[in-house]
């Protein structure tokens, strides 16, 4: 029905050129156009964080950004974290510490953690809890998530 616009986005290191409706949300672009379904939708209103991805290095909620707004940007999703060498230390830490149950919040939680640790490689417990306030987990009670972030921070410092 509506007109389409051509956008060019680098997603997980691959350049994409796509015709999209101007109203298409970034999260739907990632999930439905590109098939990257690791980014989840929990509220569509910026309140749960399940859809968190990185745009030009900053964590954003992809449910409230239009795909056209990322024209010319670099987008990273949960699918970009693991390499052939294995899981990313944050993923590893969530696994080790039982930082997930149903797993639905987890990709967003991990992307938010990535941002948190980029800005503050040695966060205190309080800083971790504050840093994750945009992400809801209904399953875990957060304790194991906090443990996971602490472990990931240690690991990543040791690795650099």
């Amino acid at each position: 029905m509506s007109n389409t616009t051509t956008i060019q986005v680098r997603v997980n290191g691959v350049s994409r050129t796509e015709e999209v409706q101007p109203r298409l949300l970034l999260v739907h672009y990632l999930r439905d156009v590109l098939g990257l379904t690791g980014t989840h939708i929990g509220c569509e209103t910026s309140l749960c964080g399940a859809c968190t991805v990185m745009v030009d290095g900053a964590a954003v909620k992809s449910c409230t950004l239009l795909a056209v707004q990322t024209d010319g940007c670099e987008v990273e999703t949960i699918e970009s974290l693991a390499t052939d060498d294995g899981l990313h230390p944050i993923q590893e830490a969530f696994w080790d510490c039982h930082g997930l149950q149903c797993g639905f919040c987890t990709p967003g939680m991990i992307m938010a953690t990535r941002q948190l640790l980029q800005e503050n490689p040695s966060p205190s417990e309080e800083e971790i809890r504050h840093g994750l306030e945009g992400n809801i987990c209904r399953c875990t009670g957060y304790k194991h998530i906090v443990d996971a972030v602490k472990q990931a921070a240690e690991q990543m410092k040791a690795g650099t």
Partner: peptide, 21 residues
């Protein structure tokens, strides 16, 4: 015992209903 479900979940590779293609 670490959960065997988790590798797929932490990578966003699992399939919830909305993820089925």
């Amino acid at each position: 015992v670490k959960r065997r479900e988790d590798p797929r979940l932490v990578q966003g590779l699992s399939h919830y209903v909305d993820d089925l293609r």
